[in-house]
Simulated scan of single mutants.
Amino acid sequence: MNPKVDDFINNAKKWQPEIEQLRLLLLACGLTEELKWRTPCYSFEGNNVALIGCFKEYCALSFFKGTLLQDSNGILSKPGENSQAIRFFKFTNLAEIIEQKSIIKAYIYEAIEIEKAGLKVNFKSNTELELVAELQNTLAKNPNLKTAFQALTPGRQRAYNLYFSAPKQSKTRETRIEKYTPRILNGKGINDCTCGLSKKMPSCDGSHKYI
Protein backbone atom coordinates (compact mmCIF):
# COMPACT_ATOMS: atom_id res chain seq x y z
CA MET A 1 0.00 0.00 0.00
CA ASN A 2 1.26 3.42 -0.96
CA PRO A 3 1.30 5.93 1.95
CA LYS A 4 0.29 8.71 -0.45
CA VAL A 5 -2.92 6.83 -1.16
CA ASP A 6 -3.44 6.44 2.59
CA ASP A 7 -3.34 10.22 2.86
CA PHE A 8 -5.70 10.56 -0.09
CA ILE A 9 -8.26 8.30 1.58
CA ASN A 10 -7.89 9.95 4.98
CA ASN A 11 -8.48 13.38 3.44
CA ALA A 12 -11.37 12.30 1.20
CA LYS A 13 -14.57 14.10 2.13
CA LYS A 14 -16.72 11.40 0.57
CA TRP A 15 -16.59 7.76 -0.58
CA GLN A 16 -13.92 6.61 1.89
CA PRO A 17 -15.37 3.08 2.42
CA GLU A 18 -15.87 2.65 -1.32
CA ILE A 19 -12.32 3.76 -2.13
CA GLU A 20 -10.87 1.42 0.48
CA GLN A 21 -12.81 -1.56 -0.87
CA LEU A 22 -11.82 -0.87 -4.48
CA ARG A 23 -8.24 -0.43 -3.33
CA LEU A 24 -8.22 -3.86 -1.70
CA LEU A 25 -9.61 -5.49 -4.85
CA LEU A 26 -7.01 -3.84 -7.08
CA LEU A 27 -4.12 -4.74 -4.80
CA ALA A 28 -5.41 -8.30 -4.45
CA CYS A 29 -5.09 -8.63 -8.22
CA GLY A 30 -1.38 -7.80 -8.00
CA LEU A 31 -1.37 -4.22 -9.29
CA THR A 32 1.10 -1.57 -8.16
CA GLU A 33 -0.39 1.37 -6.30
CA GLU A 34 0.62 4.98 -6.88
CA LEU A 35 -0.89 8.43 -6.57
CA LYS A 36 -0.99 10.05 -10.00
CA TRP A 37 -2.89 13.14 -11.07
CA ARG A 38 -3.98 13.45 -7.43
CA THR A 39 -5.90 10.19 -7.51
CA PRO A 40 -5.11 6.50 -6.78
CA CYS A 41 -3.67 4.86 -9.88
CA TYR A 42 -2.92 1.16 -10.39
CA SER A 43 -0.43 -0.24 -12.88
CA PHE A 44 1.00 -3.51 -14.14
CA GLU A 45 4.71 -3.60 -14.97
CA GLY A 46 4.77 0.16 -15.45
CA ASN A 47 1.62 0.36 -17.55
CA ASN A 48 -1.37 2.18 -16.09
CA VAL A 49 -4.41 -0.07 -15.80
CA ALA A 50 -7.01 1.64 -13.62
CA LEU A 51 -7.88 4.76 -11.62
CA ILE A 52 -10.18 5.33 -8.67
CA GLY A 53 -12.17 8.54 -9.11
CA CYS A 54 -14.44 10.43 -6.73
CA PHE A 55 -17.33 12.48 -8.02
CA LYS A 56 -20.30 14.21 -6.43
CA GLU A 57 -22.83 11.49 -7.18
CA TYR A 58 -20.68 8.38 -7.51
CA CYS A 59 -17.32 6.72 -7.00
CA ALA A 60 -15.70 5.28 -10.13
CA LEU A 61 -13.22 2.61 -11.13
CA SER A 62 -11.88 3.58 -14.56
CA PHE A 63 -9.92 1.38 -16.96
CA PHE A 64 -7.48 3.10 -19.30
CA LYS A 65 -8.12 0.55 -22.05
CA GLY A 66 -11.70 -0.19 -21.05
CA THR A 67 -12.88 -0.28 -24.63
CA LEU A 68 -10.83 -3.48 -25.10
CA LEU A 69 -12.64 -5.22 -22.23
CA GLN A 70 -15.34 -7.63 -23.32
CA ASP A 71 -17.81 -6.21 -20.78
CA SER A 72 -20.02 -9.27 -21.08
CA ASN A 73 -22.14 -7.92 -18.24
CA GLY A 74 -22.76 -4.64 -20.03
CA ILE A 75 -22.07 -2.53 -16.95
CA LEU A 76 -19.23 -0.24 -18.02
CA SER A 77 -19.89 3.42 -18.81
CA LYS A 78 -18.17 5.92 -21.13
CA PRO A 79 -16.79 9.21 -19.77
CA GLY A 80 -18.16 10.96 -22.84
CA GLU A 81 -20.04 10.22 -26.02
CA ASN A 82 -16.86 10.17 -28.08
CA SER A 83 -14.57 8.47 -25.59
CA GLN A 84 -12.51 5.91 -27.47
CA ALA A 85 -10.58 4.16 -24.69
CA ILE A 86 -11.64 4.73 -21.08
CA ARG A 87 -14.57 2.83 -19.58
CA PHE A 88 -15.60 2.78 -15.93
CA PHE A 89 -17.77 1.29 -13.20
CA LYS A 90 -20.09 3.61 -11.25
CA PHE A 91 -20.75 2.93 -7.58
CA THR A 92 -23.06 4.85 -5.27
CA ASN A 93 -22.54 2.79 -2.13
CA LEU A 94 -20.27 0.16 -0.58
CA ALA A 95 -22.83 -2.62 -0.92
CA GLU A 96 -22.71 -2.37 -4.72
CA ILE A 97 -18.97 -3.00 -4.71
CA ILE A 98 -19.21 -5.93 -2.30
CA GLU A 99 -22.04 -7.53 -4.28
CA GLN A 100 -20.08 -7.26 -7.54
CA LYS A 101 -16.72 -8.16 -6.03
CA SER A 102 -16.13 -11.22 -8.23
CA ILE A 103 -17.21 -9.36 -11.38
CA ILE A 104 -14.95 -6.40 -10.63
CA LYS A 105 -11.95 -8.65 -10.05
CA ALA A 106 -12.67 -10.48 -13.31
CA TYR A 107 -12.58 -7.16 -15.19
CA ILE A 108 -9.34 -6.19 -13.45
CA TYR A 109 -7.70 -9.49 -14.37
CA GLU A 110 -8.89 -9.08 -17.95
CA ALA A 111 -7.35 -5.59 -18.04
CA ILE A 112 -4.07 -7.08 -16.80
CA GLU A 113 -4.16 -9.71 -19.54
CA ILE A 114 -4.62 -6.91 -22.08
CA GLU A 115 -1.38 -5.35 -20.82
CA LYS A 116 0.41 -8.69 -20.87
CA ALA A 117 -0.61 -9.15 -24.49
CA GLY A 118 0.54 -5.62 -25.36
CA LEU A 119 -2.80 -4.70 -26.91
CA LYS A 120 -3.34 -1.11 -28.01
CA VAL A 121 -6.43 0.99 -28.62
CA ASN A 122 -6.84 2.12 -32.21
CA PHE A 123 -7.77 5.78 -32.21
CA LYS A 124 -9.31 7.95 -34.86
CA SER A 125 -6.63 10.40 -35.89
CA ASN A 126 -7.17 14.14 -35.80
CA THR A 127 -4.71 15.59 -38.30
CA GLU A 128 -6.39 18.99 -38.61
CA LEU A 129 -5.41 20.23 -35.14
CA GLU A 130 -1.81 21.40 -34.63
CA LEU A 131 -1.07 20.97 -30.94
CA VAL A 132 1.12 23.38 -28.98
CA ALA A 133 4.65 21.96 -28.52
CA GLU A 134 4.36 21.52 -24.73
CA LEU A 135 1.17 19.50 -25.14
CA GLN A 136 2.75 17.35 -27.87
CA ASN A 137 5.70 16.60 -25.59
CA THR A 138 3.47 15.77 -22.63
CA LEU A 139 1.29 13.42 -24.67
CA ALA A 140 4.38 11.70 -26.07
CA LYS A 141 5.66 11.04 -22.54
CA ASN A 142 2.27 9.95 -21.19
CA PRO A 143 0.53 7.40 -23.45
CA ASN A 144 -2.51 7.22 -21.19
CA LEU A 145 -3.01 10.96 -21.30
CA LYS A 146 -2.63 10.81 -25.07
CA THR A 147 -5.28 8.11 -25.13
CA ALA A 148 -7.67 10.22 -23.07
CA PHE A 149 -6.98 13.40 -25.05
CA GLN A 150 -7.59 11.70 -28.38
CA ALA A 151 -10.85 10.32 -27.00
CA LEU A 152 -12.18 13.86 -26.48
CA THR A 153 -14.39 15.46 -29.09
CA PRO A 154 -12.55 17.67 -31.63
CA GLY A 155 -14.15 20.72 -30.04
CA ARG A 156 -12.86 19.82 -26.58
CA GLN A 157 -9.39 19.14 -27.99
CA ARG A 158 -9.34 22.55 -29.68
CA ALA A 159 -10.51 24.29 -26.49
CA TYR A 160 -7.69 22.73 -24.48
CA ASN A 161 -5.10 23.47 -27.15
CA LEU A 162 -6.19 27.10 -27.34
CA TYR A 163 -6.03 27.51 -23.55
CA PHE A 164 -2.65 25.77 -23.26
CA SER A 165 -1.09 27.81 -26.08
CA ALA A 166 -2.20 31.21 -24.74
CA PRO A 167 0.64 31.96 -22.24
CA LYS A 168 3.86 33.42 -23.64
CA GLN A 169 6.15 31.43 -21.33
CA SER A 170 6.68 27.72 -21.89
CA LYS A 171 6.71 27.03 -18.15
CA THR A 172 3.25 28.55 -17.76
CA ARG A 173 1.95 26.41 -20.62
CA GLU A 174 3.40 23.30 -18.95
CA THR A 175 1.79 24.26 -15.63
CA ARG A 176 -1.60 24.59 -17.27
CA ILE A 177 -1.28 21.19 -18.91
CA GLU A 178 -0.31 19.57 -15.61
CA LYS A 179 -3.24 21.20 -13.82
CA TYR A 180 -5.81 19.96 -16.34
CA THR A 181 -4.38 16.46 -16.81
CA PRO A 182 -6.83 14.83 -14.31
CA ARG A 183 -9.77 16.46 -16.08
CA ILE A 184 -8.61 15.15 -19.46
CA LEU A 185 -8.12 11.64 -18.04
CA ASN A 186 -11.71 11.75 -16.80
CA GLY A 187 -12.98 12.57 -20.27
CA LYS A 188 -13.99 16.12 -19.40
CA GLY A 189 -13.65 19.21 -21.57
CA ILE A 190 -12.08 22.37 -20.19
CA ASN A 191 -15.51 23.98 -19.73
CA ASP A 192 -17.36 20.86 -18.58
CA CYS A 193 -18.68 20.90 -15.04
CA THR A 194 -17.01 18.33 -12.78
CA CYS A 195 -18.85 19.20 -9.57
CA GLY A 196 -22.37 18.55 -10.88
CA LEU A 197 -23.72 21.69 -9.21
CA SER A 198 -23.72 24.21 -12.03
CA LYS A 199 -27.03 25.31 -13.50
CA LYS A 200 -25.97 24.91 -17.12
CA MET A 201 -24.77 21.31 -17.39
CA PRO A 202 -22.50 19.99 -18.78
CA SER A 203 -20.80 23.38 -19.01
CA CYS A 204 -19.65 25.07 -15.84
CA ASP A 205 -21.06 28.56 -15.37
CA GLY A 206 -19.46 29.04 -11.95
CA SER A 207 -22.78 29.00 -10.09
CA HIS A 208 -21.55 26.09 -7.93
CA LYS A 209 -19.20 28.50 -6.17
CA TYR A 210 -22.16 30.21 -4.55
CA ILE A 211 -24.07 27.10 -3.42
Rank of each mutant, 00 (worst) to 15 (best):
Q84P: 04
I86H: 06
R87I: 03
R87G: 06
F88E: 11
F91E: 08
T92D: 05
E96N: 04
I97Y: 04
I98T: 11
E99D: 14
E99L: 13
K101L: 03
A106D: 13
A106K: 13
Y107R: 03
Y109W: 04
Y109D: 12
A111D: 10
E113N: 11
E113S: 10
E113I: 04
E115H: 10
K116S: 00
G118H: 04
L119S: 03
L119C: 01
V121L: 07
N122K: 14
F123T: 01
F123K: 10
F123D: 01
S125G: 10
S125F: 02
N126Y: 05
N126W: 01
E128M: 08
L129N: 11
L129T: 12
L129R: 09
E130R: 09
E130W: 01
L131Q: 07
L131A: 04
L131Y: 14
L131V: 10
V132F: 05
V132L: 07
E134H: 07
Q136F: 00
Q136Y: 02
N137S: 12
T138K: 15
L139F: 01
A140M: 08
K141L: 11
N142W: 00
N142A: 08
P143E: 14
T147W: 06
A148K: 10
F149C: 10
F149M: 11
Q150L: 15
Q150K: 12
Q150M: 14
A151Y: 02
L152D: 12
P154N: 12
P154G: 09
G155Y: 09
G155W: 12
R156Q: 15
R156L: 10
R158E: 15
R158V: 13
A159W: 05
A159F: 03
Y160W: 11
Y160R: 12
N161S: 13
L162D: 15
Y163G: 00
Y163C: 06
Y163I: 12
Y163W: 12
F164G: 05
A166V: 06
A166L: 13
P167K: 05
K168E: 11
K168R: 13
T172C: 00
T175Y: 08
I177P: 05
I177N: 09
E178R: 13
E178F: 03
K179P: 02
I184W: 05
I184Q: 06
L185Y: 08
G187M: 08
K188S: 12
K188V: 01
K188Y: 14
G189S: 09
I190G: 02
N191F: 06
N191K: 14
C193F: 04
T194M: 06
T194W: 02
C195E: 14
C195W: 02
C195N: 15
S198V: 08
K199C: 01
K199T: 11
M201E: 11
